[in-house]
Design a protein around this nucleic acid. Structure first.
Length: 283
DNA sequence: AGCGGGACCTGTGGGC
DNA sequence: TGCCCACAGGTCCCGC
């Protein structure tokens, strides 16, 4: 599921109900849900959530010690959750029933000392939880070398990053080049910019880089305003579906009519991912 | 260096 | 109904 707009939607729906809460425990139900670099989740206990942030597709709970303990480098400072394909975050009253796909339950007390829980559900179990201090983050490639946030992206910078022979779409999916774009929004942005997904990334002109940068920002902004896209599994932290799937121009529309020219949209595989585009409109 | 393909998992939908 | 295959919002790792 979750690309930048979906993670941002989760962040926005979750943040108001968890700020100022502190963890009282965590119940990991599937070991593989814990990232190999993670500190043990028992170290969460007593830590307070100061902010809920997002970086690319990562959800970041910014943590601090509640009591006046000496600040140490090794103290966990972030709880990072990566939803990957089918991860979901949901809040619940304390002692809510576990779902079939619940991988971790976090127990918390809010600022009024009222208990509640955060569920991490994940059908395919690709998602990861990482309790990290600064040192762990410095050893995590995805974090350390993640490309710029799309909303801060400048066309000149994007063009510089889109070097070489690999396809434009593969480049957009590479989190080291630009953060947060996945299969849906890569196809949508390339269609909006009129660019052929198979073209070598290094072949785009200044004007095309400008168009692509604008298209990425516009599509992602619209998707966030629509609460993200719900294809199969995605829900925000309130359990609500997004609506942007109703606005797809190409994703999932192979064989149907191009919304610009009316021709038939192509569906091909590119780097193992389904890719839909218009032969006429994307050069 | 850069690619393609497979691995990691579970579920769903289509074809027979 | 049921079986089998293809496919699904993402990364990582391996071998060519």
């Amino acid at each position: 599921m979750p690309e930048l707009p979906e993670v941002e939607t989760v962040r926005r729906s979750l943040e108001p109900r968890i700020l100022g809460s502190h963890f009282t425990g965590a119940n990991l139900l599937r070991d593989s849900a814990l990232h190999p670099l993670s500190l043990p989740l028992k170290q969460l206990t007593g830590l307070r959530i100061d902010q809920l942030k997002r970086r690319g597709k990562l959800l970041l709970f910014s943590l601090s010690a509640q009591e006046l303990t000496r600040k140490e480098e090794s103290l966990p400072s972030f709880l990072v959750i990566h939803l990957r394909m089918t991860g979901r975050i949901l809040t619940a009253e304390a002692n809510a029933r576990l779902g079939k796909h619940t991988r971790c339950v976090f127990s918390l007390l809010n600022s009024h000392e009222k208990p509640f829980q955060i569920f991490f559900d994940d059908i395919r179990t690709f998602g990861k939880i990482l309790l990290a201090n600064q040192q762990i983050l410095q050893n995590w490639d995805l974090w350390l070398n993640m490309g710029p946030e799309p909303f801060e992206l400048e066309a000149g910078d994007l063009k510089k990053r889109l070097k070489g022979q690999k396809s434009l779409k593969t480049a957009l999916l590479d989190q080291h080049i630009v953060a947060g774009i996945g299969n849906i929004y890569a196809d949508e942005a390339l269609f909006a910019a009129g660019l052929d997904p198979f073209r070598p990334a290094g072949s785009i002109s200044d004007v095309e880089a400008e168009n692509l940068t604008e298209a990425i920002k516009r599509i992602l902004r619209n998707a966030i305003e629509q609460g993200g896209s719900s294809i199969r599994d995605y829900l925000d932290a309130d359990g609500k579906k997004g609506n942007f799937q109703k606005s797809f121009a190409v994703y999932g529309r192979g064989g149907q009519n191009c919304p610009k020219c009316g021709g038939i949209l192509e569906k091909k595989r590119l780097g193992g991912r389904a890719t839909v585009f218009c032969l006429k409109c994307q050069k």
